[in-house]
């Protein structure tokens, strides 16, 4: 039977995400590369006590980060405000503006959500390591700071390094530009971001894409995420490349 990872609706694509799951949410923080339709479907599904990991915890709504002027952003706030999040793992969890707090920061102040802040390069490398079968690695990033507290350290060539462990998820929600039904994915521009590492580091990887094409229509030289890492693809349909 021909392999076909296409799922017709966003609702079906996320239907088996249970309470308590760890979910990667792709992108960098702006509209590009962020799986908004999958996030909306997860909001509608209503799974609770989720751990979400990704670069941010929703910075587009308060500041318009990476969003076209005049368009109302969608970000992680839809999940936070729906009471679905127990823990956030992120490098840039809050708004860059102290006076414009995001929904996560307000929930954090109320003690409703746990936070693990991870340096951006360490965060993505922990995902990359998970996808590549590396259980842990040493990095100089964070040595001597609060973010290394309680972690093993070791000197290499006179430089103190911190032992960081691989970070896996039960589900990765990512967004690509074009997929084929085998699950090969290409991205556009800076929307590769966290999506590439996340795709390989989750038990089930679900990609929202602008367009789904037949195998052979994507130049194999241009595949960014090979099909081996991808379980489901859903087309944005009429929304296409749009931000929302």
């Amino acid at each position: 039977m021909p392999i076909d990872k296409t799922v017709p609706t966003f609702e079906e694509a996320v239907a088996d995400i249970p309470d308590g799951a760890t979910v990667f949410i792709g992108g960098f923080g702006g509209a590009g590369g962020m799986p908004h339709r999958l996030m909306l479907a997860l909001r509608d599904l209503g799974s609770k006590s989720l751990t979400i990991a990704g670069n941010t915890a929703g910075i587009a709504v308060p500041t318009g980060f990476g969003w076209p002027a005049g368009e109302e952003p969608i970000d992680h706030a839809i999940l936070v405000e729906n009471g679905q999040i127990a823990k956030v793992i992120a490098s840039f969890p809050v708004s860059g503006s102290v006076s414009r707090k995001n929904a996560f920061e307000l929930a954090f102040e109320r003690g409703e959500i746990e936070l693990e802040v991870v340096p951006q390069g360490t965060l993505v490398e922990r995902m990359r390591a998970a996808g590549a079968g590396i259980p842990a690695f040493y990095t100089p990033t964070g040595a001597g700071t609060d973010l290394a507290a309680g972690k093993e350290t070791r000197e290499f060539d006179g430089i103190e390094c911190v032992l960081e462990t691989a970070l896996r998820a039960d589900f990765a929600l990512i967004r690509g530009a074009v997929a084929d039904r085998l699950g090969n994915i290409t991205y556009s521009g800076t929307s590769r971001s966290f999506n590439v590492a996340m795709a390989a580091a989750a038990e089930i990887t679900i990609s929202e894409v602008d367009e789904i094409v037949e195998p052979g229509e994507i130049d194999p030289e241009r595949v960014d995420t090979p099909a081996i890492y991808v379980d489901r693809v859903v087309a944005r349909g009429a929304q296409g490349k749009g931000s929302r």
């Binding site: 490098s91 809050v94 102290v98 340096p119 390069g121 360490t122 100089p140 973010l147």
Partner: peptide, 20 residues
């Protein structure tokens, strides 16, 4: 990266850039 009066901060890529 962290202003104690806010109680939460964005490290982003600052630690990586500072060491790398």
């Amino acid at each position: 990266w962290f202003l104690p009066s806010r109680g939460v901060g964005n490290v982003g890529g600052a630690m990586d850039l500072a060491v790398g």
